[in-house]
Design a protein around this nucleic acid. Structure first.
Lengths: 192, 192
DNA sequence: CGACATATTGAGATCCATCAACCAATGTGG
DNA sequence: CCACATTGGTTGATGGATCTCAATATGTCG
């Protein structure tokens, strides 16, 4: 994975470790653990993304429709934070779907509750900001990947940096995540 | 431009209008207006991006090197906020350059000063967060553009949404901003 | 004017998508 | 437990979009 992301992730962990008990309890009190069966939609396009999902177990993906085809934007595993960024930030209807690829258990926090908690516990603002920055760096990195590298190179980097994705997710989704057709991905994999 | 971005921009304006005088004065006191001659580098790769530049006049671009070629990542005009996001957020060395394409005047704020100002004026935190969200939405939008649309479509959308870019920036930079070769851009433009 | 940056045009090569056929594994209803 | 559908993946043939290299044109500024 991008070393900047690794670094930043550890900074977030460190920051969380410094949160006072009141803030942690506030977080806990607004967190609801829910389960979603394989194949179900945790968020549908048209809805406002009012929840953030921190995956406890299972795999999920975020996708949108383009000319009738599903384009996978992001794939989530344990500990990942799933949400439709634009929809969440603006509280406007989402263009994206979030689908459970396996049975999923997630810690769910409602947007309003989190906003309120931030008011009462300013330490959470810093956390919010850090999560936001993390996402910004991630998206930027991903865009650079898409811009700079060929299909083959992108696949190789995925193999290198996040092999668990390839092991546990159908190739169809990986192909569209990489921005290539399933057939091309299949050929890339068969070469050597 | 993306309607979400327009909406969010107005929300930021609204928020700024509610800032108390102390916060505004704090901002003012840490702002330094500087000028950069055409062709000069406001940020070099390898340096840490310690400043944010709010352009008052002129045009600038951000780029990185890939296999010796300059790839333009972003183009800035009046009122735009120029910085290398990853480098600024983490205060780590930048991979990007920021170059003045014309003589540029900018309101410059140092990272440390802004952090301090945020401590003293919590209202500025919210502003920081909003700017961050704005950038997140922008990057996401841009990535979607790159993923979903062909070179021709991307050019057309640029024409439609931000025609001032095309009018005032050499095609070389526009081509690399769009992720296509100069020759392809030239052909796209000549068709019809 | 001459020099250097910027843009256009042409020809050929390359990457990748699309369409279509096929295959293997898994699941399901009778 | 068999016949068949479904899902996920492979393979081949073809075409289109875009890149690269190279030559030429246009513009601009000291």
């Amino acid at each position: 994975m991008n070393p900047d992301l690794v670094l930043y992730d550890s900074r977030i962990q460190q920051y969380v470790a410094t949160l006072d008990i009141a803030a942690l309890e506030a977080l806990e009190s607004i967190t609801e653990t829910k389960t979603y069966p394989k194949g179900s939609l945790m968020l549908k396009a048209g809805q406002i993304c009012r929840n953030s999902f921190e995956l406890v177990s299972g795999i999920a993906r975020k996708y949108h429709l383009h000319n009738g085809a599903e384009i996978t934007n992001e794939i989530y595993f344990e500990h990942d934070l799933a949400l439709s960024f634009g929809s969440y930030a603006l509280q406007r209807p989402s263009e994206e779907y979030i689908e459970a690829l396996t049975d999923v258990t997630a810690r769910v926090i409602h947007y309003d509750s989190f906003q309120k908690a931030k008011e009462e516990h300013p330490m959470l603002r810093q956390l919010d900001l850090m999560l936001l920055e993390y996402y910004g760096i991630w998206v930027e990195d991903r865009m650079n990947q898409m811009r700079r590298y060929s299909a083959t190179e992108r696949y190789k980097q995925l193999l290198e940096h996040t092999p668990h994705i390839i092991k546990s997710v159908p190739l169809t989704y990986i192909a569209s995540y990489l921005g290539i057709s399933l057939e091309t991905l299949s050929r890339i994999r068969s070469r050597r």
